[in-house]
Amino acid sequence: MTKNRDLKRIEGRLFSSYFQDGAWDVMIGIMMVTMAMRTFIDHWTVSLFALGGVIYVFIIRKFLTVKRLGYARFSSSRKKKRITMFLIILAANIVTLCLLVASLFGADPSFALRTAVIATLVIITFSTVAYCMEYWRFFIWGIFLTGSILVAETFGLGPGSIVFLTLGVVITLTGIYYLLGFIRKYPLPGGDLD
């Protein structure tokens, strides 16, 4: 097992090289900024911005990352990890949906309970992604987002929005910084796709 540790490290390094583009950071940053702006703009625009973040990741991956870094298919253990990650995220979303449905039917969970559940779901989701994708910045963003939620819930939407906005901008700028570094490190190959 000790002998294969170096190979596992190589595999981890290869896999995480896809996250050097900072695309996910920008997506999370954009989502946090839109959450901060929900007091100023309508829900449809907020949803469009959030969707824009997801589309941004897709476009960057397809037209920038793979074109510069190349394409690799990873092992089945990696696929199992991804499935586990999606199942945990799905479970967290189902719990959130149940809370939403319960509140629509008149159930009014206490303020402390609601905040605790939301904060727990966020930290579980982000930690799962960080662990399964070996994308450790996600864990830090999860802690920041949980902290922002706690501030927003405790001190009301106004101060919460400022925290969300500040963190959103910081995370987006971090993502852009990584993106620029990625573009410098991996220039577009000339000639054939080879």
């Binding site: 290869l14 870094l69 190349g70 690799a72 298919r73 990873f74 190959p189 796709l193």
Partner: peptide
Amino acid sequence: LSILYVIESGDFLFIQTQTALTKGNLS
């Protein structure tokens, strides 16, 4: 071989970026 051992498959560009070999050398 270390790279190909830990992944299922990869394209030429991926191996080139990870090994930092020139195109001709890698080929």
